[in-house]
Amino acid sequence: MQKEFAFFPGCVLTQAAIEAKMSIEAIAPVLGITLKEIKGWSCCGASQAQDVDPLATLVANARNLALAEQMKLPVLTTCSTCLLMLRRAKAQLDNGQKEKINTYLAKGNMNYQGTSEVTSLLWLLAQNAEELKSKVKKPLSKLKVAVFYGCHSIRPSKDLGFESSTNPTSFETVVRALGAEVVPFTKRLDCCGFHAVYPAEKSVMKMTSGIVNSAAESKADCVVTPCPLCQMQLDIYQDDAQETTKSKARLPVIHLAQLVGLALGIDAKKLGLDYNVIDASKIA
């Protein structure tokens, strides 16, 4: 397993999903991974800023990637939207945009070369599932988990392409390595709606609620997701969503790194489990 990464936390990990950062930083040393946060990283645009200015978004991400290149390390992120934005920028740069964008980067004495790959926590763990399994201290054998991939960890496959987008298995592989039971869950590939929570609130609440209900129907104890944005959406907005759709189900929604941390025997507090809005303490 690659041991050292240029870590791109993404905005949401610094604030609203602080527990995602806590947990990933807690599991890394146990797994023997060194995460070096990219100094001066900027927002990836969150698949929003390109609606205002696609070029500015590309420049910002070229800079982010160039910063990682200076560290001579591949990039790792846990936020799926950051993953998509960075990988898409990389694809655009590597397929003809590099020279043009580099003239802009030069204004800040930077240069993009294309030497750093971009991966996610989920993919890294899936690729090293055996090793992960060997480090598990507290197998989660009683836990029934609904795995929620989140759009930007699988789609569009032209930019992500790690696995089949209609029949992915990485998440199941990882969760099974932790000893947990993966329940069949019809909405595991759906969209949580996060990116349109403001303009299309009614629809988004319906989507969020549908996911929670589907997970509950499959008798899961919790929903797990690799993406902090999905987690926020399903966790923070869950009560609102259930109220709008008059549904009863209520399920803890936890970050992938939190689940891994529990299986590695890390203290729930260190994983920030008490920051989750829907009480997740029962899972620990």
Partner: peptide, 12 residues
């Protein structure tokens, strides 16, 4: 136009 949830199913 502003109601797209960015799920990228269409692209995919």
């Amino acid at each position: 136009l502003w109601n797209c949830v960015h799920c990228h199913e269409c692209t995919n």
